[in-house]
Amino acid sequence: EIRVRVEKDPELGFSISGGVGGRGNPFRPDDDGIFVTRVQPEGPASKLLQPGDKIIQANGYSFINIEHGQAVSLLKTFQNTVELIIVREV
Rank of each mutant, 00 (worst) to 15 (best):
residue 1 E to C: 06
residue 1 E to D: 05
residue 1 E to G: 06
residue 1 E to M: 10
residue 2 I to N: 02
residue 2 I to L: 12
residue 2 I to H: 07
residue 2 I to Q: 07
residue 2 I to A: 01
residue 3 R to W: 07
residue 3 R to C: 12
residue 3 R to N: 12
residue 3 R to M: 10
residue 3 R to D: 03
residue 4 V to M: 05
residue 4 V to A: 02
residue 4 V to C: 05
residue 4 V to T: 02
residue 5 R to E: 11
residue 5 R to A: 10
residue 5 R to L: 15
residue 5 R to C: 12
residue 6 V to E: 02
residue 6 V to I: 15
residue 6 V to A: 02
residue 6 V to P: 02
residue 6 V to K: 00
residue 7 E to A: 11
residue 7 E to L: 12
residue 8 K to N: 05
residue 8 K to C: 09
residue 9 D to E: 08
residue 9 D to Q: 09
residue 9 D to W: 06
residue 9 D to F: 05
residue 10 P to G: 05
residue 10 P to D: 03
residue 10 P to W: 07
residue 10 P to L: 05
residue 10 P to N: 06
residue 10 P to C: 03
residue 11 E to R: 08
residue 11 E to S: 11
residue 11 E to L: 07
residue 11 E to F: 06
residue 11 E to M: 10
residue 12 L to N: 04
residue 12 L to Y: 09
residue 13 G to Q: 04
residue 13 G to S: 05
residue 13 G to V: 01
residue 14 F to Y: 02
residue 14 F to S: 01
residue 14 F to C: 00
residue 14 F to K: 00
residue 15 S to A: 12
residue 15 S to V: 08
residue 16 I to V: 09
residue 16 I to N: 00
residue 17 S to K: 04
residue 17 S to I: 08
residue 18 G to V: 02
residue 18 G to Y: 01
residue 18 G to D: 04
residue 18 G to Q: 03
residue 18 G to A: 04
residue 18 G to I: 04
residue 18 G to C: 05
residue 18 G to P: 03
residue 19 G to L: 03
residue 19 G to Q: 04
residue 19 G to K: 05
residue 19 G to W: 05
residue 20 V to P: 08
residue 20 V to K: 13
residue 20 V to I: 14
residue 21 G to T: 07
residue 21 G to H: 06
residue 21 G to Y: 07
residue 21 G to A: 11
residue 21 G to D: 06
residue 21 G to W: 06
residue 21 G to C: 07
residue 22 G to Y: 09
residue 22 G to E: 08
residue 22 G to K: 07
residue 23 R to Q: 08
residue 23 R to Y: 07
residue 23 R to K: 11
residue 23 R to T: 15
residue 24 G to T: 10
residue 24 G to F: 07
residue 24 G to N: 10
residue 24 G to S: 08
residue 24 G to H: 08
residue 24 G to M: 10
residue 24 G to W: 06
residue 25 N to V: 08
residue 25 N to L: 07
residue 25 N to G: 08
residue 26 P to L: 10
residue 26 P to N: 10
residue 26 P to F: 07
residue 26 P to K: 08
residue 27 F to W: 11
residue 27 F to Q: 09
residue 27 F to I: 09
residue 27 F to C: 10
residue 27 F to R: 06
residue 27 F to M: 09
residue 28 R to N: 15
residue 28 R to C: 15
residue 28 R to L: 12
residue 28 R to I: 15
residue 29 P to K: 12
residue 29 P to S: 14
residue 29 P to T: 13
residue 30 D to L: 11
residue 31 D to M: 05
residue 31 D to A: 05
residue 31 D to V: 06
residue 31 D to K: 06
residue 32 D to C: 08
residue 32 D to Q: 15
residue 33 G to M: 04
residue 33 G to I: 00
residue 33 G to Y: 03
residue 33 G to D: 03
residue 33 G to T: 03
residue 34 I to L: 05
residue 34 I to P: 00
residue 34 I to N: 04
residue 35 F to L: 04
residue 35 F to W: 12
residue 35 F to D: 01
residue 36 V to W: 04
residue 36 V to Y: 01
residue 36 V to P: 00
residue 36 V to M: 00
residue 36 V to N: 04
residue 37 T to K: 11
residue 37 T to Q: 09
residue 37 T to P: 00
residue 38 R to V: 11
residue 38 R to D: 14
residue 38 R to Q: 15
residue 38 R to E: 15
residue 38 R to A: 14
residue 39 V to L: 05
residue 39 V to F: 00
residue 39 V to T: 05
residue 39 V to A: 02
residue 39 V to G: 00
residue 40 Q to G: 09
residue 41 P to M: 08
residue 41 P to Q: 11
residue 41 P to S: 11
residue 41 P to H: 09
residue 42 E to V: 09
residue 43 G to C: 12
residue 43 G to D: 06
residue 43 G to V: 05
residue 44 P to D: 06
residue 44 P to M: 08
residue 44 P to Q: 06
residue 44 P to V: 05
residue 45 A to W: 02
residue 45 A to L: 02
residue 45 A to C: 14
residue 45 A to H: 00
residue 45 A to M: 03
residue 45 A to N: 06
residue 45 A to F: 00
residue 45 A to I: 08
residue 46 S to C: 15
residue 46 S to R: 07
residue 46 S to T: 07
residue 46 S to D: 15
residue 47 K to A: 11
residue 47 K to F: 11
residue 49 L to Q: 03
residue 49 L to A: 00
residue 49 L to P: 00
residue 50 Q to G: 03
residue 50 Q to H: 11
residue 50 Q to R: 12
residue 50 Q to T: 10
residue 51 P to M: 08
residue 51 P to G: 05
residue 51 P to S: 08
residue 51 P to E: 12
residue 51 P to L: 09
residue 51 P to Y: 05
residue 51 P to F: 06
residue 52 G to Q: 03
residue 52 G to I: 00
residue 53 D to C: 01
residue 54 K to N: 03
residue 55 I to N: 01
residue 55 I to H: 03
residue 55 I to W: 01
residue 56 I to W: 02
residue 56 I to A: 06
residue 56 I to Y: 02
residue 56 I to E: 03
residue 56 I to N: 09
residue 56 I to P: 00
residue 56 I to D: 02
residue 56 I to L: 10
residue 57 Q to V: 06
residue 57 Q to M: 11
residue 57 Q to Y: 09
residue 57 Q to C: 13
residue 57 Q to P: 01
residue 57 Q to L: 06
residue 57 Q to T: 13
residue 58 A to I: 03
residue 58 A to Q: 00
residue 58 A to R: 01
residue 59 N to Q: 07
residue 59 N to I: 01
residue 59 N to S: 04
residue 60 G to H: 07
residue 60 G to A: 08
residue 60 G to Y: 04
residue 60 G to L: 04
residue 60 G to N: 15
residue 61 Y to N: 10
residue 61 Y to E: 13
residue 61 Y to K: 12
residue 61 Y to H: 15
residue 62 S to R: 06
residue 62 S to P: 10
residue 62 S to V: 04
residue 62 S to M: 04
residue 62 S to K: 06
residue 62 S to W: 03
residue 62 S to D: 08
residue 62 S to N: 10
residue 63 F to S: 01
residue 63 F to Q: 01
residue 63 F to C: 04
residue 63 F to H: 03
residue 63 F to D: 00
residue 64 I to Q: 15
residue 64 I to L: 12
residue 64 I to S: 12
residue 64 I to R: 12
residue 65 N to Q: 12
residue 65 N to F: 03
residue 65 N to C: 08
residue 65 N to M: 05
residue 66 I to K: 05
residue 66 I to D: 00
residue 67 E to M: 09
residue 68 H to L: 12
residue 68 H to P: 06
residue 68 H to K: 08
residue 68 H to W: 15
residue 68 H to I: 09
residue 69 G to T: 14
residue 69 G to Q: 14
residue 70 Q to P: 06
residue 70 Q to S: 11
residue 70 Q to E: 14
residue 71 A to Y: 01
residue 71 A to I: 02
residue 71 A to P: 00
residue 71 A to L: 01
residue 72 V to C: 14
residue 72 V to N: 12
residue 72 V to W: 10
residue 72 V to Y: 10
residue 72 V to D: 11
residue 73 S to G: 14
residue 73 S to C: 07
residue 73 S to R: 15
residue 73 S to W: 10
residue 74 L to M: 15
residue 74 L to W: 06
residue 74 L to H: 09
residue 74 L to A: 07
residue 75 L to V: 02
residue 75 L to M: 09
residue 76 K to R: 12
residue 76 K to E: 15
residue 76 K to F: 06
residue 77 T to P: 02
residue 77 T to K: 12
residue 78 F to G: 09
residue 78 F to C: 08
residue 78 F to M: 14
residue 78 F to P: 07
residue 78 F to K: 06
residue 79 Q to H: 14
residue 79 Q to N: 13
residue 79 Q to F: 06
residue 79 Q to C: 11
residue 79 Q to R: 09
residue 79 Q to M: 11
residue 79 Q to S: 13
residue 79 Q to L: 09
residue 80 N to Y: 12
residue 80 N to S: 15
residue 80 N to W: 07
residue 80 N to I: 06
residue 81 T to A: 13
residue 81 T to F: 11
residue 81 T to Q: 13
residue 81 T to K: 08
residue 81 T to H: 12
residue 82 V to M: 06
residue 83 E to C: 05
residue 83 E to H: 06
residue 83 E to D: 14
residue 83 E to T: 08
residue 84 L to G: 01
residue 84 L to Q: 03
residue 84 L to S: 00
residue 85 I to R: 14
residue 85 I to S: 12
residue 86 I to F: 03
residue 86 I to Y: 03
residue 86 I to N: 03
residue 86 I to L: 11
residue 87 V to L: 11
residue 87 V to I: 11
residue 87 V to G: 14
residue 87 V to K: 13
residue 87 V to P: 02
residue 87 V to M: 13
residue 88 R to I: 00
residue 88 R to G: 03
residue 88 R to P: 04
residue 90 V to G: 14
residue 90 V to F: 13
residue 90 V to Y: 09
residue 90 V to S: 13
residue 90 V to D: 15
